[in-house]
């Protein structure tokens, strides 16, 4: 294990969950492909940071960082795809034409609006957490040398990312860089809480809407289907007298 990539206590507790994820082929592929999306999106966001920072050194470092992240995305994507090819019969259950889960690595950060010190602190904390987690993942894929090698390579880069973000933070905010890191940790925790809360709200919302769907909708569904049967196919004339009020949303 890299001496700089410490595993967070929470991740130690969650070790059985991580093992459950990585021991299953489908979940492993899904995870790798999801990482590919997250790393690529994160890379694009850091690229954006390189484009907007006024600091020449940071621009070069962000650019390096972005290139690394985009490369990690490619590594994960290629490995996920290679694994998929070995078990092509599972494709249908895995994908079914549905877009993969993914998202912007830094999507809750508006890069243009963040000063460099806040972005550096955020990146430092995020990279450190990712390095800790990737260390666990690397150890859990011992049966798969190629995937393990990818984690090894990425971990080396993560150490560079952790270091440069911290040293540069110390350079741009020499008096308060430690405070900035703590602040980033607190912000990360808060965002994690918000994500969990939003997830719970989404589940509750889905449940309520599903109940409404089955209780309230059947008569309207019957009427909608009756109306559909009366609809002509082909051209529908557009009435010149149709309500075309400029201010109407209908």
């Amino acid at each position: 294990m890299s001496p700089l990539a410490r595993v967070a206590p929470l991740d130690r507790i969650l070790l059985p969950v991580h093992r459950w994820v990585w021991n299953d082929f489908d979940r492993r592929v899904r995870k790798l492909l999801a990482f590919a999306e997250v790393e690529s999106d994160g890379g694009r966001d850091i690229l954006r940071a390189a484009e907007v920072t006024p600091d020449a050194l940071l621009r070069r470092l962000y650019l390096e960082h972005a290139i690394d992240e985009l490369h990690h995305g490619d590594l994960f994507r290629q490995r996920g795809a290679a694994l998929l090819r070995t078990r092509s019969t599972r494709l249908r259950t895995l994908f079914n034409g549905t877009p993969l889960p993914g998202g912007h690595g830094l999507d809750d950060l508006s890069i243009q609006d963040e000063p460099d010190h806040r972005l550096l602190a955020f990146l430092h904390v995020a990279e450190k957490a990712a390095a800790g987690r990737f260390t666990i993942y690397r150890d859990l894929v011992d049966d798969d040398p190629q995937t393990r090698a990818i984690f090894e390579e990425i971990l080396r880069d993560e150490v560079f990312h952790m270091n440069y973000t911290y040293t540069q933070l110390a350079r741009v905010m020499p008096r308060s860089y430690r405070w900035q890191v703590w602040r980033a940790r607190a912000s990360r925790l808060w965002k994690r809480y918000l994500r969990v809360a939003a997830g719970i709200a989404s589940v509750v919302g889905n449940a309520v809407l599903t109940i409404m769907y089955f209780i309230l909708l059947p008569p309207f569904a019957w009427m909608a289907r009756r109306a559909e049967r009366r609809e002509p196919v082909g051209w529908t004339p557009i009435s010149r007298t149709r309500d075309d009020s400029p201010t109407g949303q209908y």
Partner: peptide, 9 residues
């Protein structure tokens, strides 16, 4: 969604 009931659940 109504027309596809209940497949649209």
């Amino acid at each position: 969604a109504l027309r596809a009931f209940p497949r649209s659940w």
